[in-house]
Amino acid sequence: MAGGAPGGASKSEIYKGNGPRLLLPAWIFIGVFLVAPVAIMAIYSFLTKEFRGGVIWEFTLAAYDQFFLDRGLFGDEPPSIEWTYIGIFWRSIWQAGLATVLCLLIGFPTAWFIATRDVKERSVWLFLITVPYWVNLLIRTVSMKFLIRDTGPLNELLLALGVIDTPLALVNTNFAVQLGLFYSYLPFMVLPIYAAVERYDFSMSEAAADLYASSWATLRLVILPVVKPGIVAGCILVFVPSLGAFLAPDLLGGAKTFMIGSLIEEQFKGAAGNWPFGAAASMILLTIVMGVLLVHARAQTKGER
């Protein structure tokens, strides 16, 4: 991607020499109000906590120590690994991963189906898939909760149909959180896969069949290499926001489905009020996400070569 946009449009030099000047507002806004804040947050993670929120400007590793090490109730025991927070991160990764798989299982056939329609039909399907994404995320999550709660319309319907005898307890389960994440980010899976399948030239599979390839071989050797970047991009676009999601776990989950987003939020909004610890957890989350994106970018540039 570094080489500029396809079609050579970026080679245009109409306003040559004005580039840096035109980018100045973007640099100032994102630099001052995003890059600098993240840097300050990084500093906060090394500060001492003040009770009832806030920090004392004394440098310490206490926040990271609390995250990774267990020193017993009074802090005087030899340190062992503290599993509570690592566990919350692990659960978040697991939940985000399952939501990604769910999105892939539903999103791939959907994207494939849409990409193989007529051009006019495609844009209508795409529109239908993307509209819910633009509806307020909070409203979508609340709607999902309303639908699947114990006395909600879904249970009423299933009871009336005689499919179940007792209402399904869906809210406050891991599945509800995965469903919420799936519901939140599904279009992120469909769109890149759609874009990849749309580029695929179906005469290639005909050529493969002419050369006696089985349909499985065609899928694996001809189609998959073309579609794979779309699948990978879709998985990243679903996994990354799911990992730090707050609304779906908070509204659809319970104490047992506590995820990173809630852990961090609690440090700033809740009673726990440990700002350096919240900043440290944010730094660890940011590191994981940037790691995933970096590995992806590396693989992409390697593939282009």
Binding site: F33, P37, P241, F246, V289
Partner: peptide
Amino acid sequence: SLALINLPLMVPEIVTAVASLVF
């Protein structure tokens, strides 16, 4: 510059929220 413009999409929302508050 392109990376910078896209940065708000890459930083998790909760991290942006925390960073903005402490800033």
